[in-house]
Each structure stands twice: as C-alpha cells, then as structure tokens.
Nucleic acid binder design. Structure first.
Ligand SMILES: [Mn+2]
Ligand SMILES: [Mn+2]
Ligand SMILES: [Mn+2]
Ligand SMILES: [Mn+2]
Lengths: 219, 219
DNA sequence: AATAAATTTTAGGCAAATCTAAAAATGATT
DNA sequence: AATCATTTTTAGATTTGCCTAAAATTTATT
C-alpha cells in the first residue's frame, strides 16, 4: 500500500511519541509534534485506522499496528541514512541535515535505500549517534548512559546526543566535542550539578542540562 | 515563492514541450505529457499565470515567463544531477534512474544541489548524455548530430541518446554501446536505411529508428 | 461561407488535508 | 456526587489537484 507523505509523517510522529514499547499516544501529543490542530489529527487517526496502520478508539488514544510500525521504522531508516550521507559524503554540518533528510526520507525506492546504505558502509548510527535500523527494521543497541550520570574519573567515549536541535548541536560543536571523542568527568559541582570535563588537554565546565543530553559509553 | 510539486512538474512539462525558444504550448500537449486531462491543465494554467510563471491567454496557448523558465531549469538541473549520482556513485543502470530522479528533483535545498554538483565534479552531462544546466541556468552545448546522418567511415564518439525510454536504453546497453564509445558507420542499406556499425572489433546492424536516437560527434 | 472536427474552457463535483468553533467525553477538584 | 477544566471529537469550511460532461472557440473541410 502506497502511503502519502502526510500519512508517513503521522506514523513517524506516533512512533517517536510512543517509544519502542508502543504505548498509547494522545491526540494532542501528535498535534503538537506535527505542529497541527487536534481536530486535524483525529481525522487522520480515523484514516490510519481504516488502513490498519494504527489501533485507535475514540477518546482512548492510538498505537501503531505491526504494519504501521514497520512503515515508520522504514522511513526512519531512510532519514538517518540520508543524514549520514549528507554529513559523510557532502560535508554538511550535523546541525544542517535534519530538514533536508525530512524531505529525502519520503523518496520511494527500496533499491535506492539499500544501495545508499551499502555505499555508506551500512552505518549503524547517524551523525547524531542515533541508531539506524537495518533493512529488517532491527535497531542496533546504543549507549544509554548520559554524561550527567557517569562515574568520576572514568574514561568515556562520546556516542551521541539526546537533543538534536540546531542550538544544542552548534553548542556541542563549538565546544570541540565530536562523536567518538574521549573524555573524563573530573568533578560535579554540588551547587548546580554542573560538571568539569577533561577533553584532550583542555578542561571546561558543562551545565547539567547540557550533560544530560550527551550519550557516552566506556568503550 | 514556494512552488508545489505539481506546479514544478507543470513548469518542467511546458519547458520540455516548448523547447529552448519558448514556443507557445498547446494545452493538450501538456495534458498528454503529464498523463492528465485538458480540463485539469486549464485550471493549472490559470494558476501559473496568476503567479507570473507563464504567459497564457485562453485558447491561445501558454509560454514560460523568465521566472517560470528559471524554475523549470533549476528542477531539470537537480533531476540530471541526481541521475548522475545514482549511476556514478550508487551503480544504478541508466535505464533505472529516471523515476527515482523524478522524486529527488523536488527536494528543496540550494545548498544540497550545489554540494551534490561539486561532489560529482560538476558534470556537464547526465548518464543519457543530456546537458546539465549550471547553477545560473546555462546549458552546455551538446552534440546534435545523430547516427543516421553521420558520414560513412568517419570516427565517431557516442555522446547521448535522444530517446530515454527504458526499452531503448536497455537495447543500447545490450548492444554493448556506452557513452564515450568510438564507432564508425560502414554502410547504409538503401532498402530500409538501416546502418552497419563497426564498434571495437565487432560489426552489427542498427535500424534507422535506433540510429536517429543516438547522438554522436567527431570529438 | 457554412458545416464538421478538433481543441480548449467552463461548470459542477470529489478526495485529501487542513482550519475554527462548538459539542461531547473524560479527568480532576471541591 | 456535582462542578469545573482539559482533552478529544464533530460539524462545517477552505484549498489544491483532479475528474466528467457540456459549452465555447478555433481550425479544417466541404
Ligand atoms: Mn533528523
Ligand atoms: Mn518527513
Ligand atoms: Mn530523466
Ligand atoms: Mn517530478
């Protein structure tokens, strides 16, 4: 079945909100994420239900069906592959690629997606460290430890960012932090929970808000 | 001004039909090219005129304005760059890329287009030998000699194909002819105007219909 | 010039996706 | 339990792009 661009975006939105365990999603949450009105969402929910892409009972909320989830994951795969392409091959900054990928993710060609993946070396993570599902829809495991919860003095590797807004991405880049970089937490300030970081030979301070948006792992 | 995908396709269609000299275009011709109905085209013509993208008088025909032409050429540039990418970087066959490029051509990002062009080495011609306009909309000159009109015995280089249908592209590929290949016309059969070709060490016969769809030049 | 054929436009409708305003259902608070 | 607030749905419109059938215009043919 051939989905419209709009339907695809709704499925992706529901997938993001409900998380991997497919919780029930509120109509308002979808409206907010897609920057539209609840009434509009209700219309689309009825339509998606009629196409068996979501489970939906009026006033109860919505949840992706297996098919709906497969569609959503497929689009997410394309989105993250294109972001990787834009950064790795065309030299875009990681803060510039999301909006372009938002368009490219809707291009329909199984063969294109798989050729692109192959061309990129079947990457497991996109430029923001987000996991790229494989052709069967399976996500690689990614670091779930954030910098604010890390042990003092431990060697850590930067694996990704939780917040992908251009503001945060620009800030992290300005600090000179890149994916794969190694760093240590030297101390946590009791007053405001800001942390002191050692990165290369430099030391600098990071707010708790920034720290909790950076994924790290020991390997 | 932000054009819809549909509007872009109409502009491109009018550009193709009217040729470089911007002749008046019949409503029916547009309908046929876009596989739609004349009544639908009329609606769109009024809309495009109101946006100053075409000149249009009822019953007289339509013609792109300067802005309209710039838009059309910009989309064509993207189309041909993406086709080049698909063949050169992703290893697609030249008969497979048109439909995918038809989607990719509508992705909106000046920066993406120019980065892509640069990544491909600012190609002048696409995989079918069609000229790729530069960022200012200027087309490179391409061979306009077709194989059916070539001199006997002259060394010729294959520069492109006039017909880009998958059937013809597959046929040419099956014959082992690629862009840039060198060949000679050994004789023309008076009966059906078919021609005898020498290509590498092989000789084979080509129908007049095939020959007139292959562009060649002496250089 | 009159008629026939073709092209093109107009009229009227339909489906998708959106909106605002009003009604209905649910949940929270006295 | 009754009331108030929030969430969600319904009702009624709008815009875009498309359709069919009928009318108007242009072009070709007697
Ligand atoms: Mn993104
Ligand atoms: Mn999208
Ligand atoms: Mn093409
Ligand atoms: Mn197109």
């Amino acid at each position: 079945m051939q989905l419209s661009l709009t339907e695809e975006n709704y499925l992706k939105a529901i997938f993001f909100i409900s998380g991997t365990e497919s919780n029930l999603v509120n109509t308002n949450a979808v409206a907010e994420r897609l920057d539209t009105k609840a009434a509009t969402v209700t219309d689309m929910l009825r339509k998606l239900k009629s196409k068996d892409l979501i489970h939906y009972e009026p006033y109860k909320g919505s949840r992706l069906t297996l098919t709906g989830k497969q569609q959503a994951v497929g689009i997410l795969r394309k989105h993250r592959l294109w972001e990787t392409f834009l950064v790795e091959k065309l030299g875009f900054g990681w803060e510039e690629v999301h909006d372009i990928a938002e368009q490219l993710e809707h291009v329909r060609s199984r063969k294109l997606t798989e050729r692109l993946a192959q061309y990129l070396g079947n990457p497991q993570f996109d430029p923001h460290g987000d996991p790229i599902p494989d052709a069967e829809g399976v996500f690689p495991q990614r670091a779930n430890l954030t910098l604010d919860k890390a042990e003092l003095g431990e060697r850590l590797y930067v694996k990704g960012v939780k917040d992908s807004s251009p503001d945060f991405l620009n800030y992290v880049a300005k600090l000179g932090i890149q994916l794969g970089d190694s760093l240590k937490v030297l101390q946590v300030e009791p007053f405001d929970s800001s942390i002191l970081i050692k990165h290369d030979e430099r030391e600098f301070r990071l707010s708790a808000q920034a720290a909790c948006n950076i994924y790290v792992s020991q390997t």
